[in-house]
């Protein structure tokens, strides 16, 4: 396993951006006699016993530069946990994860994250302030920062709302602020955790087109968590289908349709149905 901050000699330049090797992630929880998970904390005078909740098991995946990977699976299958490991918020229980050949050690602006909830946008900063905070923390000068922010605001089509506070914006606009905040630093890897899950279908479709546009305009790798099959097939060129918990890879579906994709085309529907079947039959052995 690579040591902290030290380049692992096994991975030279030009190799995968992200390598996930046989990781397992489990949480320590309290369970009752029937092994039902009750809570993460132990209460006084309860009969709960410590137990283990395995979120991800023997998971191996490589992601190349410029790929758009969708992690697709039923809720609770560990796909968000995997994303949090990649972001550096969690560490795997066993196995190892590398980013550009280095072991992941805590959060890093090179691995920007867009959270599921639009509440992640700082309510005490304006749209401009939210987007400009990343460059500010990177030590970018005032003038360069202003330019970068203006460019990003244009990219996510939020012109005219620079000075608005988040409370005055809609959910879809807030998620665009969150995306802008993540991409303004030009991260190598963009992690998105069901960013459009809470939005209505129309806004979601619109924002999906945005993400494709951003992905095409700035060369970067995107890992996108979703439980929406159509969203995964529409966006990604590699859909990783998870089993139910503990999360393992069921199948990696390559999607070679050119963007913009037609949701009504035969190939699209065929791939969507394929993914639907993968998710539906939970027990292929029995």
């Amino acid at each position: 396993m690579a040591m902290r901050g030290e380049t692992d000699k096994r991975f030279g330049p030009g190799s995968h951006v992200v390598e996930i090797k046989d990781i397992k992630k489990s949480f320590y929880v309290y369970v009752d006699e029937g092994q039902t998970v009750l809570s993460e904390k132990r209460r006084w005078f309860s009969r709960k016993k410590p137990g283990e909740l395995v979120a991800i098991k023997s998971f191996t995946l490589d992601v190349d530069h410029g790929e758009f990977v969708a992690l697709l699976g039923p809720s609770g299958c560990g796909k968000s946990t995997l994303l949090r490991i990649l972001a550096g918020f969690e560490t795997p229980t066993s196995g190892f994860v590398t980013f550009k050949g280095n072991a992941i050690n805590g959060p890093d602006p090179q691995r920007a994250m867009v959270f599921q909830s639009e509440r992640a946008v700082f309510p005490w900063l304006t749209v401009e302030g939210n987007i400009g905070l990343g460059p500010k923390l990177q030590g970018m000068g005032k003038k360069a920062r202003k330019e970068a922010v203006a460019k990003t605001i244009e990219l996510v089509e939020l012109k005219g709302f620079e000075r608005a506070y988040p409370k005055t914006l809609s959910g879809g606009m807030l998620q665009r602020v969150a995306v802008a905040r993540a991409i303004v630093n030009h991260p190598e890897l963009l992690l998105m955790d069901e960013p459009f899950g809470a939005l209505d279908a129309q806004t979601r479709n619109h924002l999906q087109d945005h993400v494709v546009k951003i992905w095409q305009s700035i060369e970067q790798t995107i890992i996108f968590v979703t439980h929406d099959i159509e969203e995964a097939v529409y966006l990604a060129n590699k859909v990783v289908v998870f089993t139910a918990r503990p999360g393992e890879i069921k199948e990696v579906v390559s999607i070679n349709l050119p963007h913009p994709r037609d949701r009504t085309s035969e190939e699209f529907i065929g791939l969507r149905n394929h993914c639907t079947r993968l998710i539906r039959d939970k027990h292929p052995e029995g």
Binding site: G88, A112, M113
Partner: peptide, 14 residues
């Protein structure tokens, strides 16, 4: 909120 703390960490905040 934890999500705000994580947000600034992922933006490179110390």
């Amino acid at each position: 909120q934890q999500i705000h703390i994580e947000s600034i960490q992922t933006l490179g905040g110390s």
